[in-house]
Design a protein around this nucleic acid. Structure first.
Lengths: 351, 351
DNA sequence: TAAGATAACGAAAACGTTTTCGTAAGAAAA
DNA sequence: TTTTCTTACGAAAACGTTTTCGTTATCTTA
């Protein structure tokens, strides 16, 4: 790789000192107009661009924010990142992305490498394994040192820090209420294991909606899916509990799509005999037939909000609000899977 | 933010010089065992971690690779990035991601900031606008300077450099041949405007397959979609050309899904009366009903391949192969939309 | 016992910047 | 003419490392 020009070579070529070059480029009024113009012209000609590393080291500012997500190939997370990138870009910041793959050790590594000077702040959605093992020590260190960090979506409740979340309880309530409003009376839920708080909270909202509507709660229709085992088999159980649901709330769009699939295979008409609603408005919900109603989670908005919080913390070091929580509103996107009236979608599907 | 310990504070606290600390931590045999152990213990206790910026500046090595993609919320690109991340991670490299949003100016900015010391090499899929304006000057600079760079997917043909692509012509041929093998005789294509080379190449393959199979070529069934205008309306035209296709090859999965949708609305039975195949094996293809056959593009493999090429170039500076092109194989993923025999999928869909 | 070898450490340069603090020459003021 | 200001620039420190090259003692060897 051919040598890059730096301030030293410029200085040598021009027969002046590095300080003169530096000051000229920053348009300092210590330097005479003629000298500045000479320097500018030559820097331009040589296509000089300052070295970012040296700048960062000197200024103790990287103009970079790090983001750690469990996975990338996921509509929600890529939306969030896009949101982060937008406000980062607006503020002349750059983005470093790390993937934890939902592993605790990888997450620790990533946090460490970010925190050692590479970025000015971190945005993170915590790995599943960290929740399972209840290990957030790597984050606690940072928070204690007042290192700028913002959690989003999957956040550790035990840590006081900046967070961007949705109101999962309310979202679950909304979804369930919607099913009820559309006429469902026997409701089931497809949720996550207990250590995933978002699933638990959505389930709380589900139960709350049932109670306020004075509808029966069927324990056997509340299925926790463990993703370490085949998902389809587990989802299927909701249809073989003796009592058949006429409304299903799935805490993510994948479970919703699978439930829809299974229902159609079994000859259950959706939405006439069974209404299904998912969570997170991703690609899948828009392409199933019938299309899936969902609770929109607004990933992009979460991203922009997280980035804004982080940047204002970085730049103001606003200690007063160091445990502020930004709540992103959810809303129902109604599609065909929860329509009230009978219609003529194709509903029979046999293998 | 509380001060981080550095090598200086360690040295001061221990009453030795910074060189001694540095050497101790690197287990240099210049230093006595006792001193080393004292240093190790204290560094451990203080949780010392070297500053990445200083290291990078000193070693002229960032251990970071930059990747520029047109967009993130896209199954293919996020797969590629995951692939890159995997091999980067295996080699102790980190990832910086920039989004060009398909804009030329943003791409120039990103290239510049990466090239000024922030990363050791760049992986990039070029923005649409750069193709439209035929401006690759920002890349030419880098290539001339032998800066490590690998292009993937959307690559500038005019530049000799490392590239990872699929054989789009062959992919288009494969797809079309598959339609023909499944019984289609009147074939149409949904493709991109002429400046998108991948679309053009896939179309070349399409035409080649028609010629080798001695099937008629209908110009009116070759529709170029301009994404600046409503897509659905443009896709619809393929059904209103006087002659109705019984096979459609769409150069991406989005067009395929839309074509499927429109066909079903029109009461055309898929796959009995019309077979459809897309390109890129994303989420959409798996969730439409019937499911869409596609040409799998293996984004993850492209990512790993690009990263491997880049790293070997960075580390060996292997000039001999500076214009090597890695060709990733495509293959047909057959699903329901191109099945040969009549079956009982629901095919009628009216609004 | 003088000379060379070795062990253990420190000083300083270097990576590429910015910025503080001189300092020389000329201009203005006394 | 002497003093004090400006003007225009350079030297050097600093950011946090690594590494080369001393520089001391102490230890061998002749």
């Amino acid at each position: 790789m051919s040598k890059k020009v730096n301030i030293k070579t410029l200085a040598a070529d021009l027969g002046v000192s590095v300080s003169t070059v530096s000051k000229s480029l920053k348009n300092s009024l210590e330097i005479s107009k003629e000298t500045k113009e000479r320097v500018w012209a030559y820097a331009q000609k040589m296509n000089y661009k300052p070295n970012s590393l040296a700048l960062s080291l000197r200024n103790k500012k990287t103009m970079t924010i790090g983001i750690i997500v469990p996975e990338l190939v996921h509509h929600f997370f890529s939306r969030v990142i896009s949101g982060v990138e937008q406000v980062a870009n607006h503020n002349a910041y750059h983005l470093m992305i790390a993937l934890s793959n939902d592993r605790l050790d990888k997450e620790k590594q990533d946090v460490e490498m970010f925190a050692n000077g590479r970025v000015d702040g971190i945005i993170v959605s915590v790995a599943k394994e960290s929740f399972e093992k209840n290990d957030f020590s790597h984050f606690e260190d940072l928070v204690n040192r007042n290192f700028p960090i913002v959690f989003f979506d999957r956040v550790p409740t035990s840590i006081r820090a900046l967070k961007v979340i949705i109101d999962d309880i309310f979202g679950g309530y909304q979804a369930t209420k919607h099913l009820i409003d559309q006429g469902a009376k026997t409701l089931g839920i497809l949720t996550t294991p207990p250590h995933i708080t978002v699933g638990v909270d959505r389930q709380k909202g589900f139960l709350k909606a049932l109670r306020t509507s004075q509808l029966p709660i069927y324990n056997q229709l509340q299925i926790s899916i463990n993703e370490k085992y085949p998902i389809v088999k587990q989802v299927e159980k909701i249809f073989s509990q003796g009592i058949l649901p006429d409304g299903i709330f799935a805490v993510n769009e994948n479970y919703a799509a699978i439930a829809l699939e299974i229902a159609l295979e079994k000859g259950i008409k959706v939405p006439e005999e069974l209404k299904i609603i998912g969570f997170t408005d991703g690609l899948i919900s828009k392409t199933t037939r019938p299309r899936l109603s969902t609770v929109a989670q607004h990933g992009f908005a979460m991203g922009t909000s997280a980035a804004e919080m982080l940047l204002s913390y970085i730049e103001n070091k606003n200690m007063l609000e160091f445990d502020r929580i930004s709540l992103i509103e959810t809303n129902i996107v109604q599609r065909e899977s929860t329509e009230k009236k009978r219609n003529n979608y194709p509903v029979v599907y046999k293998k």
